[in-house]
C-alpha cells in the first residue's frame, strides 16, 4: 500500500507535470531544430514567436467566446489554434520576406543572421506587448480536470490523491499527434523529403532541382504551427505572459542542443530530458520518501535539492554536461 501511495504521489507531482512540460518543450525545440537545420541559424526570436502565436490564439478564443461558440468540455482555445497558426504563419512569412531573405541571398554568416533574429525578437516582443499588454492572461475554459484528487482517493482508497488536469491530458495527446504528423510529413511526403535533403546537403539539394524558397516557406509554416501549438498548450496549462515565453527560450534551446541541433528526434528526447530533470531536481521529495523509507529514516527537511527558482540552472547544467561529453548532442546534431 505504501508503495502504491508513493507511486501515486510520484506520478502526481513529478511524472505527469514533467510529461506535460516535456511535451511543450519538445514541440518548441522541434521548431528551433527545424530552423537550425534548414535556415542554418539559431533563432533567438523563437520565444517571442511563441508568445505571438499564443496571443493570436487568445484573441480568437475571446472572439469565439463572445460569439457563444464553445467546445465544452474542451477549452475553446483548441478551436482557435488553426486561426492562431494562420496568423503566426503570415507574420513569419512576412518577416522572412522583409528580413531574412536578404541575408539568405547574401549568404551572410550565421552569426550575423543570429543578430538579425535579435532585432526580430525586439520587434515581436514589442508587438505582442503592444497588442495584448505585458500582463498575465488566463484563457482556459471548459472542464478543468479529467481525474480529481478527491475522486481518485475515494475510488482507490489510497491516501494520496491523483489529479489529472484536462490541459495535461490535452498537452500530451496533442504532442503525440503533432509529432506523428510531423514525422510522417518529413519521411513520407515529397516536400518533407526535399526538406530533409536540403538540411543534409544544401548544394546537392539545389542540384537535384529542389526549390530553396519553397523549402524555406514550408519550414516557416511548420515552425509557426509548432510554436503556436506549444505556446497555447503552455498557456492553457500555466498562463500566458510575454516575459515567461521569452524566458522559455533557454530550456527550449537547451532541449534542442542536448538532443543535437538539427535532429528532430533529438529535440523530442532533449525536451523530456530537460523537463524531467528540472522537475526532479526542484521537487520536494519528502512526500514520496515518507512512504518508501522506514519511519526511523524519515527525512526531516523537504529533501528538495534546489529551490524552484533554480530551474534554469538545471537546464543549463545538463546543457553544459552534454556539450562537454558529446559536443553535438545525444543524437548527433550538425554544426554550421
Amino acid at each position: 500500500m505504501d508503495f502504491l501511495n508513493a507511486l501515486v504521489a510520484l506520478s502526481n507531482f513529478v511524472l505527469i507535470p514533467a510529461m506535460t512540460y516535456g511535451s511543450q518543450l519538445a514541440l518548441g525545440a522541434l521548431g528551433v531544430t527545424l530552423v537550425y537545420g534548414i535556415l542554418r541559424f539559431s533563432n533567438f526570436a523563437h520565444g517571442d514567436t511563441m508568445a505571438f502565436g499564443t496571443m493570436s490564439v487568445i484573441l480568437f478564443t475571446w472572439l469565439f467566446q463572445s460569439m457563444g461558440i464553445s467546445l465544452h468540455p474542451l477549452p475553446t482555445a483548441l478551436l482557435a489554434i488553426p486561426f492562431g497558426i494562420a496568423a503566426t504563419a503570415l507574420l513569419m512569412l512576412g518577416t522572412d520576406r522583409v528580413v531574412y531573405r536578404f541575408y539568405r541571398a547574401q549568404k551572410a554568416k550565421p552569426v550575423i543572421v543570429v543578430m538579425v533574429s535579435l532585432g526580430v525578437m525586439f520587434i515581436y516582443n514589442g508587438l505582442t506587448r503592444f497588442i495584448l499588454g505585458a500582463e498575465e492572461q488566463r484563457f482556459m475554459d471548459g472542464e478543468r480536470f479529467i481525474i480529481r484528487a478527491r475522486e481518485f482517493k475515494e475510488m482507490t482508497g489510497l491516501r494520496e490523491g491523483l489529479a489529472f488536469k484536462t490541459t495535461q491530458g490535452l498537452t500530451i495527446l496533442t504532442a503525440v499527434v503533432v509529432v506523428i504528423v510531423l514525422f510522417w510529413f518529413l519521411n513520407k511526403t515529397r516536400t518533407g523529403k526535399s526538406m530533409r535533403a536540403f538540411s543534409d546537403n544544401e548544394d546537392l539539394a539545389l542540384l537535384s532541382g529542389i526549390n530553396p524558397e519553397r523549402v524555406v516557406m514550408v519550414t516557416w509554416i511548420i515552425v509557426a504551427a509548432l510554436v503556436t501549438i506549444a505556446g497555447t498548450l503552455y498557456g492553457l496549462d500555466k498562463s500566458y505572459k510575454p516575459f515567461t515565453y521569452f524566458q522559455l527560450l533557454l530550456p527550449i534551446f537547451a532541449a534542442a542542443i542536448v538532443g543535437g541541433l538539427g535532429s528532430p528526434v533529438g529535440a523530442i528526447a532533449g525536451g523530456f530530458v530537460i523537463a524531467f530533470s528540472e522537475v526532479a531536481v526542484t521537487y520536494a521529495w519528502k512526500k514520496v520518501l515518507v512512504y518508501l523509507l522506514p519511519e526511523s529514516l524519515e527525512p526531516e527537511g523537504l529533501v528538495q535539492l534546489l529551490a524552484t527558482e533554480y530551474k534554469f540552472a538545471v537546464s543549463f547544467m545538463i546543457l553544459v554536461i552534454v556539450l562537454l561529453i558529446k559536443p553535438t548532442g545525444i543524437f548527433k546534431g550538425k554544426s554550421v
Binding site: S42, V111, V114, L249, F253, A254, F312, A313, S315, F316
Partner: peptide, 18 residues
C-alpha cells in the same frame, strides 16, 4: 561554437540572477 556559447552565456546570466 558561437551559437552554443551564446546559449551558454544566456543561461549563466539567468543563473546569476537566480
Amino acid at each position: 561554437r558561437s551559437d552554443y556559447l551564446a546559449i551558454a552565456t544566456l543561461g549563466i546570466s539567468e543563473i546569476v540572477i537566480a
